[in-house]
Amino acid sequence: MSALPPSDHEDFARSIRDSGFRFVAGADMRAHLLQHGSLDDWDAFAASWNDLAPDAYLAQVGRHRRRRHAVFHAGRDGTIERQPHQPHYQALSYNALQGDIERWFEPLRQDIADGASLGTVLGFCRDFFSTLAPRTAAWRIELHQFRIEAGPDREGQPTPEGVHRDGVDYVLVLLIDRHNIVSGTTTIHDRDGTELGSFTLTAPLDAALVDDGRVFHGVTAVTPQDPSREAHRDVLVVTFRAQA
Rank of each mutant, 00 (worst) to 15 (best):
T131K: 11
Q60C: 15
Q83H: 10
D111A: 15
D100K: 05
L205C: 14
P224L: 07
C125H: 02
T220W: 04
Q110A: 09
D41F: 07
V219R: 04
S228K: 10
I188N: 09
I181R: 15
I188L: 15
D153L: 05
A203G: 12
F45E: 02
H217R: 00
W104D: 09
R126G: 00
F21Y: 07
L236I: 12
A13D: 08
D177S: 14
G75Y: 06
P54N: 07
T194C: 10
R68H: 11
N180Q: 06
Q243C: 02
G193K: 10
E149D: 12
Q86M: 12
S183K: 12
R241F: 09
A208Q: 14
T120V: 02
V168W: 01
D111K: 15
L33T: 01
G151L: 03
T200H: 07
E155G: 09
A53R: 02
H179G: 10
S93N: 01
A133M: 05
H179N: 13
G99M: 06
E161C: 03
G78P: 07
R103L: 04
H179Y: 05
D169A: 00
P152D: 09
H73A: 14
S19Q: 14
R214D: 05
A133V: 04
M1W: 02
L118I: 13
P5M: 08
L143G: 11
F21G: 04
R76Y: 08
G75W: 05
L174G: 02
H232N: 00
R154A: 06
S228R: 15
V71A: 08
N50H: 10
L33N: 03
I101H: 11
P107F: 10
D43Y: 06
D177M: 12
E142P: 14
G162D: 03
L4A: 10
P204W: 09
A133C: 06
R140V: 00
S2N: 12
H64I: 01
S183H: 15
S93G: 01
G213Q: 12
G213D: 13
I176F: 12
V24T: 05
I16L: 15
R126Y: 02
S15F: 05
I181D: 01
L175G: 10
A25D: 09
Y57T: 12
F105K: 13
M29L: 07
D114H: 05
Q98Y: 04
S48E: 15
D43R: 11
G26N: 06
F129C: 11
A25G: 13
D55R: 08
A137G: 06
R17L: 12
V71G: 03
P134K: 01
D55G: 09
H32L: 08
H232Y: 12
G123W: 03
D114N: 14
R191D: 04
W42E: 02
G37L: 03
Q243F: 02
D111M: 14
R68E: 00
F240K: 00
